[in-house]
Amino acid sequence: MSEGNLNIVLDDLTGSEIAAFLQAHIDDMRATSPPESKHALDLNGLRQPEITFWSVYCDDVLVGCGALKQLSETHGEIKSMRTGADARGRGVGGAVLQHIIEEARKRGYTRLSLETGSMEFFKPAHRLYRRFGFEPCAPFAGYKEDPNSLFLMLSL
């Protein structure tokens, strides 16, 4: 799978396929992170005016997703980055992350931040974010210091 095969589309979060895909995301986070350290949003949490959500398809199969939340006029947060288990390691995460970074730049953001888990399960995500230039930062936007969380930011 290469980025050329991927189709990244704006999603209004009304379809059953994305609902099931996001439920798998929530289930993974519940299995991996203690409840007080789980910051993944469910469908209702993602259906907010300050959040833009994209689904990623390869040959009409849902393989990933990601969202951009506006925190301020110059600061965005990446939410709900997920690659389906069958598509991991095949460029989906990089494609959606690049898409979100480009959208943040178009909006005039000067900073893009994210929170992810600190456990072994999240190591592939850590490598992806670092490859794109994200660096560790302090908690932001109401998050608190947490040994189960890693906070990263990218200056745009």
Rank of each mutant, 00 (worst) to 15 (best):
L41Q: 06
N44A: 14
F140G: 01
D86P: 00
T116C: 15
P35W: 02
R90H: 13
Y129G: 10
K38F: 00
A85K: 12
C65R: 01
R90P: 00
P35A: 12
T83M: 10
V61Y: 05
A138R: 13
M119S: 15
Y129S: 09
C137F: 04
A138F: 03
G91T: 07
F132I: 06
K144P: 00
A104C: 08
G133L: 10
C65D: 03
V56E: 04
K106D: 13
Q23A: 07
L22P: 00
E50Q: 15
E77V: 03
V63Q: 07
F140H: 13
L114I: 09
A20W: 02
D60R: 14
C137G: 01
F53E: 01
A138D: 15
G89M: 11
S149M: 02
S80W: 00
V63N: 05
K144V: 14
K79M: 07
Q70M: 11
L128N: 06
H75E: 14
M29S: 14
T52L: 10
T116S: 15
N44T: 12
R111Q: 15
I100T: 06
A138S: 15
L46E: 01
H126L: 11
E120C: 00
L46C: 14
I78L: 15
D27R: 09
K69L: 09
T110N: 12
E77Q: 15
S33K: 02
Q23C: 01
G66Y: 02
F151E: 00
G45A: 08
A87M: 11
R47T: 09
A141V: 05
L112M: 11
M119Y: 04
A31I: 00
K144Y: 04
F151G: 00
Y57N: 04
L43A: 06
W54D: 10
K123T: 12
R127D: 06
F140C: 05
C58S: 14
F134G: 03
C58M: 10
V56T: 15
L128I: 11
D27F: 02
G89D: 11
M119L: 14
F140N: 06
A85Y: 02
N148K: 02
T83G: 07
A141K: 03
R105E: 13
D60S: 15
P136L: 08
C137N: 10
E135H: 06
V61Q: 15
H126T: 08
R105A: 13
G76C: 09
P139T: 12
L128A: 11
R131T: 12
C58D: 15
K106P: 00
T74K: 14
R90E: 13
T83L: 05
A87K: 05
Y109G: 01
L97F: 04
A141M: 07
F132L: 10
E103I: 04
